[in-house]
């Protein structure tokens, strides 16, 4: 029953609220950009280049979060074979891909004025590139393998293997010497970012998460429709 009920519910909710979500996104995004570019203070060492953080950090969070979801969904998918789950993961993949790309590019722009170099192959940066490659592999598996069953299996395996990369990204800065600085926001202790900078960071994170949600809902709707069309063709 869950199988038939859930996607339709999500789609009807999407149709109802998507415009409200978009309006909310515009408001939050404008607030976030104004706050992070104009209101928030410069950093005591880095000056204004710290403002790149307001794009870089939320993008990285979302890139990792999306893959964590894809990985866990892949495990559940291989065990229980519920058709709804791969569609959720598949809809999320391009979002994670774009945000990991944004994270890498903005990180590079941030590296030049602070470290003095665009790119280094330290553990954090390298593991982030590996995440990007996993996204590409995952998306390509869906794109180029024609049979749904087969694509589902291959992409799930890619998702599960890629899951191992996530703790490596997260803890690379603690396990090894890296040029990238350690995390400012951790679960165990207070953030080492001043609250005047933490507020715009939180707003920007919220707006990017909202953007991801909107794109995800749109993509999910399309994926479900595709499945329905294929089913209809079969029964004709």
């Amino acid at each position: 029953m869950l199988k038939n009920f859930f996607p339709n519910k999500i789609i009807s909710l999407t149709n109802k609220f998507i415009n409200n979500l978009i309006i909310l996104l515009i408001i939050v995004l404008v607030a976030g950009v104004v706050y992070s570019l104009l209101i928030s203070p410069p950093d005591h060492i880095q000056g204004d280049s710290v403002r790149i953080m307001y794009v870089h950090v939320p993008s990285s969070f979302i890139a990792l979060g999306c893959f964590a979801f894809i990985g866990v969904a892949s495990i559940i998918n291989l065990i229980f074979k519920i058709k709804l789950i791969p569609l959720l993961a598949k809809s999320l993949a391009p979002i994670g891909f774009i945000f990991s790309l944004i994270s890498i590019v903005t990180g590079s722009f941030w590296g030049k004025p602070t470290w003095g170099i665009w790119w280094v192959w330290d553990a954090r940066l390298t593991s982030m590139v590996i995440l990007l490659l996993f996204y590409i592999a995952y998306i390509f598996a869906w794109k180029f393998i024609e049979s749904f069953e087969k694509a589902n299996k291959v992409s799930s395996i890619i998702g599960i293997v890629g899951l191992f990369n996530l703790p490596v990204i997260k803890y690379s800065v603690d396990w090894w010497n890296t040029l990238h600085q350690p995390s400012s926001i951790t679960l165990t202790s207070a953030p080492t970012i001043h609250y005047k900078m933490l507020i715009p960071l939180a707003i920007m994170f919220f707006s990017m998460a909202l953007y991801s949600l909107i794109i995800f809902l749109m993509r999910y709707k399309i994926e479900v429709m595709k499945i329905k069309i294929i089913k209809k063709k079969k029964y004709k």
Binding site: P41, P42, D43, H44, I45, Q46, V50, M53, T114, W115, G116, I117, V120, L179, Q181, P182, S183, S184, T192, I193, H194, K196, M197
Partner: peptide
Amino acid sequence: KILAKHDENYMPPEVK
């Protein structure tokens, strides 16, 4: 080659 490594503390100059 010399690269600068910064730490994880971010604060406004006046707070510093």
